[in-house]
């Protein structure tokens, strides 16, 4: 199935709940609200024609100060952040992209780690670098930055020259009591 066909099925299913939908060089994506995320991803994973059995990546985007470079005018998003889910079907060899609109002040997205186990670490990365929380995540701790890090480094308003040193002795790092989930 082409991505355009998948997008048509998603639009037929969700109707006006699709906030944005676009195609660019054969790649398609839909943007939805956080409340629609789990039903849609569950359906995409389990529908026998689509069956996106592999979650390739989860990434955050910060659109603070963004303006499109293609001359189409100002950005019309009413939300600052998006979380993008890259889906792939090993069975059918097709891809699809789902984005979730995350507006301030409530930066919360439902976790999908029970749909794809790999989402566990990917969601921790988005939390670490963008500060978007994933509701239902079993172990939402930082994964890349150290434990004393304050703030979220890939937000557009994080100062580009700001450095944060890790001061605690090495024993505290290596002998972490928390589970490695």
């Amino acid at each position: 199935m082409t991505e355009r066909e998948i997008m048509a099925r998603v639009q037929a299913k969700l109707g006006a709940k699709v906030l944005q939908a676009y195609e660019f060089r054969g790649q398609c994506a839909v943007t939805i609200a956080p409340s629609e995320l789990r039903p849609l991803l569950t359906w995409l994973r389990d529908d026998s024609d689509i069956q996106t059995d592999w979650l390739l990546d989860v990434g955050g985007v910060d659109y603070l100060g963004y303006s499109p470079t293609d001359g189409s005018g100002d950005d019309d998003r009413e939300w600052r952040y998006e979380v993008a889910y890259q889906l792939y079907s090993m069975r059918h060899n097709h891809r699809f992209r789902v984005k979730v609109a995350v507006a301030e002040p409530n930066l919360v997205v439902p976790s999908v780690w029970d749909l794809w186990g790999i989402a566990n670490w990917m969601e921790r990365e988005v939390w670490d670098l963008y500060g978007i929380r994933f509701e239902g995540h079993p172990n939402l701790r930082r994964i890349l930055c150290h434990d004393e890090f304050v703030g979220h480094a890939l937000r557009k308003d994080y100062p580009i020259n700001k450095r944060q040193k890790l001061t605690s002795p090495v024993e505290n790092i290596l002998c972490e009591k928390a589970e490695w989930a």
Partner: peptide
């Protein structure tokens, strides 16, 4: 990395 720094020091 900053996360590795205490290990190198040790």
């Amino acid at each position: 990395t900053q996360k590795m720094a205490p290990v190198l020091k040790q």
